[in-house]
Nucleic acid binder design. Structure first.
Lengths: 182, 182
DNA sequence: TTAAAGTTTCAGAAATTACTGAAACTTTAA
DNA sequence: TTAAAGTTTCAGTAATTTCTGAAACTTTAA
């Protein structure tokens, strides 16, 4: 298998963006290639195709599995492990969001919670705790909202995301009709 | 000025999270310290407090300014530049989201758009373009939605984010009452 | 002007992160 | 059992990123 220039451009771009998305270059390339390949690929194919050492591919696979972004597939009469993306593009986005939340928000929330348990000892600490409280509440609200979105069906979520300025209108409606309920 | 252990713990945590949030350790520390300090700080104070070289602080300030996260302040009869966080915690979150969108999503959207302009040359490319199309649409929907949220007032946004399962109900309502409108 | 107070730049050093490849390990089937 | 096919681990190396500190620059006021 030899990939076309266009596909290669996409794969290389995934590599460059990799670190910004939370993994490193080679892992980004591996995932990019798997996503746009119709056929599942073996670790050796990934290694040859991307010119990455076999060991590195193995580590990358482990990482992608820990993100739950790829899954193993077996072919009858073939001992090799074949890898393909786990789930739809939609699920992919969901997983990436969730993993990143775990890495980027949860640790901070937990530090802030701990810190807010202790009474402030002086004026500086009063101000500091105040700010920490604000940040804590904001992160908690975001986390809650994100969880809510993740729980919705893709269809409903798409409807919501495409509402545009309708969101505001719908919110007003909610005030009108549901003030006592929900 | 000497900071308390609790405050230091927060600042150091910001440093550790820094790279996950899109900047590096020292920049994370600098921003953390500025956020929880009631008083604006000079570059020298940041340098001493965090034991970071003066040059590094200067580069960090430039970076934080490019994210529009801090602003300069002057005191009468004092030539030094004092720095403080720009805007509320709320605005801070907004800016970080927006900057990250620029760095993490926009380049990919633009690559995908370019790629989708060319007709596929063979079966692999048909499949690949299909996937790229899916990704493109998803990223565009997310970007649109994010922009919509950023345009809302903090109050309205808070209401929305705290709606919980009410979001689904409100969406159903929209179908009921606005089918022809909006 | 000039010197003092302050800021920025950037080449090189230090620290961190990613990658290789050979050796160790595991699984399967003959 | 054992050897072949395949996977994983990890010590050492390479690449990248971050940081320092001294020199260059800018601004202000005497």
């Amino acid at each position: 298998m030899i990939i076309s220039a266009k596909i290669e451009a996409f794969v290389m771009h995934c590599g460059e963006m990799g670190s910004r998305w939370g993994f490193n270059r080679t892992i980004g390339q591996m995932y990019g290639l798997l996503v746009i390949s119709e056929e599942a690929l073996t670790a050796n194919e990934l290694s040859e195709q991307l010119k990455i050492s076999r060991g590195n591919v193995s580590m990358g696979i482990k990482e992608l599995q820990s993100w739950r972004l790829i899954q193993v597939q077996h072919k009858p009469g073939d001992r090799k492990e074949y890898y393909r993306p786990a789930g739809s593009i939609w699920e992919m986005a969901n997983r990436i969001f969730e993993e990143r939340r775990k890495r980027e928000i949860d640790p901070t929330l937990s530090l802030l919670r701990d810190n807010l348990l202790n009474a402030p000892a002086n004026n500086e600490e009063i101000y500091a705790q105040d700010k920490m409280h604000e940040i804590h509440d904001l992160l908690e609200t975001i986390t809650f909202f994100a969880g809510e979105l993740q729980g919705m069906s893709p269809e409903k979520l798409t409807t919501l995301m495409k509402l545009g300025s309708g969101i505001g209108k719908v919110l007003d409606m909610k005030d009108k009709f549901l003030k006592s309920g929900t």
